[in-house]
Simulated assay, not measured.
Amino acid sequence: MGASVIPFVIFTVLWGGIGIILPIFVPKGPNRGIVQVILMLTGVCCWLFWLCCYVAQMNPLIGPKLEQNIILIMAEKWGNAVTE
C-alpha cells in the first residue's frame, strides 16, 4: 500500500488554510496575537498528527507469528481452551 497524493494535498491545504490564512482575518483586539498563535499551532499540530497517522498506515506493524502449540497453551491459560 503506497501513499496517495490526493489526501496529502487536501489535508495540507485544509490545515495550511487554518494555520496560515485564518490568522490574517482575526479582528483587531487585545488578544489578537494570542488567537493568531493558537490558530497557527492548531494547524501545525493537527496536520502533523494527521501525517503521522497516515504514514503509519503505509507500513503497519504485524503481530508476532506464534506456533500452534503456543497459541493453544495461551488459550488454555486465558480460559479460552480450544477443542480439537
Rank of each mutant, 00 (worst) to 15 (best):
L72E: 13
I34A: 10
T42V: 09
V82D: 05
V35I: 15
V5L: 14
W15Q: 00
G17M: 12
F25G: 00
L61H: 11
V35D: 00
V13L: 15
M1Y: 07
P27M: 06
C46V: 08
G63Q: 13
I34V: 13
W50D: 02
F25C: 03
I6F: 14
E76V: 04
V44A: 15
P60M: 11
L41D: 03
A56L: 11
G19P: 03
P27F: 10
I38D: 01
P23T: 02
T83M: 13
Q57H: 08
G79Q: 09
N69H: 15
G2T: 08
V35S: 00
L61T: 09
V44T: 11
I62G: 00
L14K: 04
Y54Q: 02
G17H: 05
M58H: 10
C45K: 11
N80Q: 13
C52E: 06
W50K: 03
K65A: 08
Y54V: 01
K77D: 05
M40L: 10
N69G: 00
V55K: 05
G17K: 09
M1E: 05
V26W: 02
Y54K: 05
W50R: 04
Y54H: 06
V26M: 04
F49M: 04
I38E: 00
Q57M: 10
G79W: 14
W15V: 01
C52R: 07
T42I: 07
C52Q: 07
A56I: 02
S4L: 11
W78M: 12
I70R: 12
C46T: 09
M40G: 04
G2R: 11
K77A: 13
A3T: 06
V44F: 13
P60K: 12
W78L: 10
L41T: 04
V9G: 03
G79A: 08
W15G: 01
G16H: 05
R32D: 02
Q68Y: 10
T12S: 15
A75P: 06
F25P: 00
M1T: 07
L61S: 11
G2Q: 10
G29C: 09
G79S: 07
V13M: 14
L51N: 02
Q68L: 14
C53D: 08
M40A: 07
Q57C: 02
L39M: 04
M1I: 07
F25A: 04
W47S: 01
W50T: 00
T83N: 14
V35Y: 06
P23G: 03
L22I: 03
E84I: 09
G29E: 05
T83C: 03
G29Q: 04
C46W: 09
T83E: 12
C45V: 15
N59V: 09
E76M: 09
N31S: 07
I6H: 09
E84F: 15
Q57S: 06
V5K: 12
L14Y: 12
V5T: 07
F11R: 01
G33I: 05
Q36A: 04
I71E: 09
